[in-house]
Amino acid sequence: MDNESALSEEQANFDPTQITRPDPSLMTYYFIVAVLTTIGFFFLILPLVFKYHTLRYKFDDKGVSMSWGVLFRREIYLTYRRIQDIHVTRNIFQRWLGLAEVAVQTASGSAGAEMKIEGIRRPELLRDFLYRQMRGARGETEPQVAGEAAGEPVSDSDEALALLQGIRDDLRGLRQTMEARS
C-alpha cells in the first residue's frame, strides 16, 4: 500500500502541460519496430524519423492537441470531456522502454482511436490524468457545489410556485375589476 500512496503523490506532481515533445526513447522504439520488419526497414524508418522529429503535444486545461508530419501535416485536437474510453497498449518493447500507446476515443464515427499518444514517460500517470478529466470519473450526477451562487440551480421550486400563483391571482383580480368597470 506504500506504493499506492507514493503513486498518488507522483500523480499530484504530474503536469502534462509540461509535455510538448515525446520522450527520446520513442525513437529507439521506432527503430526497433523498423528493424523488426527487416526488408521494410528503409521504407519505414524515414517516415518514423520524420514523425518523431515533428511530433508535438499540447495539453491545456480543456483538451489536448497532437501534431506531426512534414509533407502531410496532421493535427488532432480533442477535449477531455469528450473522451469516451482510454486504451493503453503496451507491447514488450514498449514495456522495456517504459513507454505505452495511450489511445483515446471520442464518439466520432471513425474506426480506431482518434488520438494515439505515444512516447510519454510514465504513461500510467497520463492515463490517470486523462481518466480524471473524463466525464463520470468524479461525482457529476450530483451537483458539485451547493446552489449558492446566482447562476446555480436551486431546488426551491415551492417558492417559485407560490410567486407564480400570486402573480396569477393579482392579474385575475385586475381583470375582474376592469371588467366590472366597463
Binding site: 473522451i83 474510453d85 482510454i86 486504451h87 493503453v88 503496451r90 466525464r135 470519473a137 457529476e140
Partner: peptide
C-alpha cells in the same frame, strides 16, 4: 488496458 466510465 481499457478504461470506460459508466457515464459514457
Amino acid at each position: 488496458e481499457t478504461t470506460i466510465t459508466f457515464e459514457n
